[in-house]
């Protein structure tokens, strides 16, 4: 109950960060698209290394995002610790933000696909639509990206463990 409440609040916090949230949603939407596309190619007999390249890119982005959040939220975390939040409560703040970014990115990709296919289908003489990538490639890619996010969560959380509550008392 209380963990769920912290998780829900973390989603609200994430959305309200504005520019950072939007920037990473766009980055993840692009990476998800490219990963799904490469995975789809691999499933139909393509090469493996481009997929690895994109998974590597997602890992790097997740790490950067984790570091960025931990830096940005340092004073907040110190304050929350003064207010009695445990390390586990704080972990949910990061999980919420990183997961939300992934799912909003996936939603945007789906929206683009639906609209793109709608427009192409409408204007094509035979009203047929091209296949972009398979739904299984999309879902597996989303799973990979969500999984890789835990790398970011772990990095952010480990850094936060070193934040002592008394840092909240530091003067600006």
């Amino acid at each position: 109950m209380m963990t769920f409440r912290v998780f829900v609040k973390s989603l609200r916090l994430a959305v309200r960060t504005g520019k950072r949230f939007l920037l990473f949603v766009i980055i993840y939407a692009i990476l998800l698209w490219l990963t799904a596309d490469r995975l789809d190619t691999l499933m139909t007999g393509g090469e493996f290394w481009p997929l690895l390249l994109f998974i590597g890119s997602v890992s790097v982005v997740a790490l950067v995002y984790g570091l960025l959040i931990s830096n940005y939220r340092k004073t907040q975390v110190a304050t929350l610790r003064c207010l009695g939040w445990t390390s586990s409560d704080i972990k949910w703040l990061f999980i919420g933000e990183l997961m939300l970014v992934c799912f909003v990115a996936a939603f945007i990709d789906l929206e683009i696909i639906v609209h793109y296919l709608g427009i192409v289908g409408y204007y094509s003489p035979s009203h047929t639509v091209p296949q972009i990538y398979s739904s299984s490639a999309f879902l597996i890619s989303l799973g990979i990206i969500v999984g890789v996010q835990f790398l970011g969560v772990f990095v952010a959380w480990r850094r936060m463990l070193n934040v002592r509550p008394m840092e909240a008392l530091r003067k600006a």
Binding site: L13, T75, Q76, T79, R81, C82, L83, G84, W85, P165, A168, L169, K171, A172
Partner: peptide
């Protein structure tokens, strides 16, 4: 801290 103590900071430290 959660049950017995409250803090007020110079910089307010609101989120």
């Amino acid at each position: 801290r959660r049950e017995r103590v409250g803090f007020v900071f110079q910089n307010f430290n609101l989120i």
